[in-house]
């Protein structure tokens, strides 16, 4: 290769490596700010500040959803399969909200360690299935559960 081109290539390579390293370090330093939400474990460890608006996310625990019949108040727990966090919310939940679904809630932690949410978003996973397949899956699950 022509020495001039080789020199240019090396210069560009060095600049790119240095820039990537710089951006990587910045990202690493800011990773807590880049994370969209705290997991229940992080909140249990006390990493999340109190009385400041934060987001918390996790899977809605089966059987934990309590709805008030008179108001739109709803309370439920989310889990990351290590710790649980109780969330209280007043308002309309997204269509995809259900037990076992991932959600992200925005709100403030109170002294009890409960998140008083002002917004609840549903988090979707990357799995897609036609409804017939889900039914078939559930039937086979039930069939295998029966002795």
């Amino acid at each position: 290769m022509h020495p001039v081109r080789k020199k240019r290539m090396i210069t560009i390579g060095v600049i790119l490596v240095l820039l990537s390293a710089a951006i990587g370090l910045v990202m690493f330093a800011l990773s807590q700010n880049i994370n969209l939400f705290y997991s229940p474990t992080q909140i249990a460890k006390g990493e999340a500040p109190q009385q400041v608006t934060i987001r918390a996310g996790g899977m809605v625990v089966d059987g934990s959803v309590e709805r008030q019949s008179e108001t739109l108040d709803v309370a439920f727990a989310v889990t990351d399969y290590q710790h649980q966090l109780r969330i209280e919310y007043r308002g309309i939940l997204p269509d995809l909200f259900r037990e076992g679904q991932g959600i992200v809630a925005q709100g403030k932690l109170d002294q009890r360690g409960v998140l008083i949410a002002s917004e609840v978003l549903a988090k979707h996973d990357e799995e897609y299935m036609p409804p017939e397949v889900t039914e078939a899956l559930e039937q086979s699950k039930q069939a295998s559960a029966q002795p």
Partner: peptide, 20 residues
């Protein structure tokens, strides 16, 4: 790398796709 609201990739050429 981070917690995001966006789900991971569905369309992958290297692995089995997560849809029928």
């Amino acid at each position: 790398w981070w917690n995001t609201l966006h789900q991971p990739a569905t369309f992958r050429l290297t692995e089995k796709p997560s849809m029928p």
